[in-house]
Design a protein around this nucleic acid. Sequence first.
DNA 1: TTGTACGCGTTATCAC
DNA 2: GTGATAACGCGTACAA
Lengths: 375, 375
Amino acid sequence: MSAMSPLARPGEIGHTIGNVSNGGDVATIKEVAARAGVGLGTASRVLNDRGGTSSQARRRVLDAAEELGYVAHGPARALRSTRTRVLGLVVSDVSNPFFAELAHAAATAAQEHGYALLLANSDEDPANERAHLKTFATQRIDGLMITPTGRDAGPFASLVAERFPLVFLDREIPGLDVPSITVDNATGIQQAVNWLAQRGRRSIAYVGGPVSVTTGTERLAAFRQSMTAAGLEVDETLLAEGDFRVHSGVAAAHRILTQGAPDAFLSADGLMTLGILQALQQSQPRAGGLDLVSFDDSPWFEFTTPPISAIVNDATAIGRSGVTALIALLGGGTADSIRVPARFRARVGPEASQPAEGFEPVHEKGANDASGDRS
Amino acid sequence: MSAMSPLARPGEIGHTIGNVSNGGDVATIKEVAARAGVGLGTASRVLNDRGGTSSQARRRVLDAAEELGYVAHGPARALRSTRTRVLGLVVSDVSNPFFAELAHAAATAAQEHGYALLLANSDEDPANERAHLKTFATQRIDGLMITPTGRDAGPFASLVAERFPLVFLDREIPGLDVPSITVDNATGIQQAVNWLAQRGRRSIAYVGGPVSVTTGTERLAAFRQSMTAAGLEVDETLLAEGDFRVHSGVAAAHRILTQGAPDAFLSADGLMTLGILQALQQSQPRAGGLDLVSFDDSPWFEFTTPPISAIVNDATAIGRSGVTALIALLGGGTADSIRVPARFRARVGPEASQPAEGFEPVHEKGANDASGDRS
DNA sequence: TTGTACGCGTTATCAC
DNA sequence: GTGATAACGCGTACAA
């Protein structure tokens, strides 16, 4: 059945995608050339828009391609050109809203540049990460974006040595000269701490990420520094190291609440924030209230008790910028590392009514424009 | 530089992934064979674990491959075998938590079966969908999973005619004989409506999805039927059609609240639920309270006012089952359509204290185990 | 401007 | 058990 199936519209995909169940009998460029009555080279030139062809031949080739439903054979093309038009994205965990938004942006941007996107989740396991890199290597992706797990340069050393197009997203590996698109952790944390300090909070608990990744270490360092700068003391018993997952937030908060009585919690990531919230519900409400601040924003932070203030981490910007940087690398150029700005979004309940000046208040009903309505 | 870069560990990916910036000088199977002192066929047989080789030759080939850092060339392999070991997933929008979880499960399952996963977002636009199918076709994916946008069989007709491995996820195209993994919309909605009825709610507003997709129509039909079965009347002014995005939930709720005074809202998807919640905050709280129920669960539903009850839509099961079905198709077998069970999770605030019997109460603090802590 | 021949890396089919 | 060799679909240098 090399004829088009009756239901298929001309120019549609369809029969051209088949390769397994059927005989893989898709029109080849050779057949297109034959039908157009031209040589193979001419057909190739026309289909790749490379000029040097008579408009007559061009017409005939395009018509033939249309009629046969020709779709270029990527693997064959890749074999010749050493380019697959496929990018790879290894993310910690797409089911984390931050990475989901990042993946959405990256996929869209890749598509805009004519690239397909292979997705994989490391789930914070270096073994998974290695396996995915191997898979991607076999697929011969043209470039790689990754949120690296761990601080080990090993898995990337050879890529760097070969100057393979590589971009780190959200995190980086210290000492490796690889373009990275990261958020401005320090400023974000600092704004949050300052805001808490202005509100009179003095005993601030901090639930950080794993020190094995830069987002873990940078945010923790920023917290310490910001506390000192604000004239507050860091109580080591109010510090916990989580793993960017919900449960670690629960556990951390429970432990902290056992050992002390903080008047605020600062969390290094959205999922742990959820965990902290769960733990808080199970504890006695503190007189004087308690502020909760999260790295990573979510639209529902507005609706909890207490409302959750956030350091807005622009995943879309990181995803898009990552693709842009990678495309530059692919073109043989260079790409600079980028620090995406973070901005603090204060949210307070109706009872605590004096807003600290200089911060964006969002507790008026309906003033929330970043409502997660994206598409 | 066909020698291994010094930093690379043996067996690591690395230089084998390079193909653009460097000369693409990766060890080929031919070089492996030469170094092992065997023929090309023997090398291929060993590297593909196809037996029929002496253990001696086997050893030599594996050693040579290790030393050269050989990684199979997927495109070349695909050219010959007509199999890419790549699956495609087109999802409505990965930044929607439901689809994010689905994508996570699908990617993991694919990896377990030795497949890579191409991801794309249709963003509910048929034009995007077509473009992605075209891209996937060019890449010669082995099989496709998709949450179809619209009811038009056109884009899939030729795939079906060719018996191309195809599975619908979450939705389906009526009249098309394609295995689908969908949730049991009817039962889920029915449980929700019954629960609301038992709580004495009589004026229930419904914010549905677009009627252009089966999740939109099925859930709406189930709502009407369940209302009737529960002895309740459907007030047409309390019905709205949204588009599965936040803003449509806001708009729908505003319109409904202008025209009537429902004592409950039922939403066909998690994002619209968020929108409804936003709208509710801007309106006068209703005496007697108001129940909010959402198709799709989220861990934070526990913490809002009012708490949000949910019809739990198991995205992980859908994603995993989709891959399983696709793998069966790839093996030349058949796959049955599956209806994943939905279960209702009631959540009520502390003030409304008489729980309806027969439903799972989750408002006790800390009883929430499905806390979104996945990885 | 056009057609032809070669080779990309791999697997499958043969004789040996 | 093993090693040549043909083919997969395509881009391109080269000849015409």
